[in-house]
């Protein structure tokens, strides 16, 4: 159950202005909805660096290690002895190590994005409105009931086309 207020904006600069005002006023935590990525908006929100890269690094290292390990271990386990050639040869096994690094690294990146974004999301977000994927911007301010009026005034002043209670 979401509380607080949700506002629709038609213009990008209006939503950027509202974000700045909300940060100053500290009326509550807020979420910004945008139909696409705008660096201008991203800079105004200033959310910091995504942690997805940690999943990428760990996944890539695990994948590469597994690729080398499985090829070396199986070669030692069932040796194919050909002349004086190495039983476990790291040069061709680099192909396996590389492919597994890409496979596990990329999939763990996606997994990390899912975890950090909380998707797949099966609960409907009451603050979300269909126009937010179409052409409108939105802000949901999660505030206590006694601060809702202040938040509504602030959002209207910034240029919100519509402000409602998020319930």
């Amino acid at each position: 159950m979401a509380y607080g207020v949700v506002a629709n904006f038609r213009e990008l600069d209006a939503v950027v202005e509202a974000v700045g005002a909300l940060k100053k006023a500290s009326v509550g935590k807020f979420t910004v909805y945008s139909p696409t990525i705008h660096h201008e908006l991203e800079d105004a929100i200033g959310g910091g660096t995504s942690k997805v890269r940690r999943f990428t690094l760990i996944g890539g290292l695990l994948g590469a290690s597994f690729g080398y390990w499985v090829s070396i271990w199986t070669s030692e386990y069932w040796p194919l002895v050909v002349g004086g050639k190495a039983i476990a040869s790291w040069i061709p096994y680099t192909i396996i190590g590389f492919e597994m690094m890409v496979m596990v690294g990329a999939l763990s990146t996606v997994f990390g994005m899912f975890i950090l974004n909380g998707i797949p999301r099966i609960v409907v977000d009451p603050a979300y409105r269909a126009p937010f994927s179409h052409g409108d911007y939105g802000i949901h301010v999660d505030c206590a009931p006694d601060q809702e009026s202040a938040a509504m005034d602030l959002l209207k002043k910034a240029g919100a086309s519509e402000v409602q209670r998020a319930r």
């Binding site: 979420t31 910004v32 909805y33 959310g47 974004n117 977000d125």
Partner: peptide, 10 residues
Amino acid sequence: LGWRNTDVEW
């Protein structure tokens, strides 16, 4: 997957 276009998601 319940995508909502939030700033965190982007």
